[in-house]
Amino acid sequence: MPGQRKRKQRRLRETDRRSLPEGPGRWETLLSTEDHAEFRTFVHRMYAQGLATDPNLVRLDQFCGRLQHPTTYRVSVFVPAPA
């Protein structure tokens, strides 16, 4: 269908813009591992303890591995800059 790629890209950009945290700050890495079970356990424990109250302030990344680099999982939290 003509123009579908443009619409999809625009929709993805709008979604990314809505989910960005407000104001200046930085992403702080809490966990970086190659073990998926450890990653999943950490995320479940983090949500159970109430450390992740706003899902827009937590970033869960999966870096796909290839032959030389294994798949890596990372949990980051947005830390706002002090006022």
Rank of each mutant, 00 (worst) to 15 (best):
K6S: 10
K6G: 07
R7S: 03
R7T: 00
R7D: 03
K8H: 12
R10C: 03
R10L: 15
R10W: 09
R10I: 11
R11Q: 15
R11V: 08
R11C: 09
R11Y: 07
R11E: 15
L12G: 04
L12A: 13
E14W: 02
T15R: 11
D16E: 12
L20P: 04
E22F: 05
P24K: 14
P24R: 13
R26Y: 09
E28L: 13
E28A: 12
T29V: 12
T33M: 08
D35L: 09
D35F: 10
A37N: 12
A37L: 13
A37P: 02
E38D: 09
F39M: 09
R40G: 13
T41G: 10
F42H: 10
V43H: 03
H44I: 05
H44L: 12
R45A: 13
R45S: 13
Y47Q: 12
A48C: 06
G50F: 02
A52F: 03
T53Y: 06
T53S: 09
D54C: 02
D54H: 03
L57S: 03
V58W: 05
V58Y: 07
L60Q: 09
Q62S: 12
C64N: 10
G65I: 00
R66L: 11
R66V: 12
T71W: 00
Y73S: 03
R74T: 11
R74M: 05
V77P: 01
F78T: 04
F78W: 09
V79Q: 15
V79A: 14
A81S: 07
P82R: 07
P82M: 03
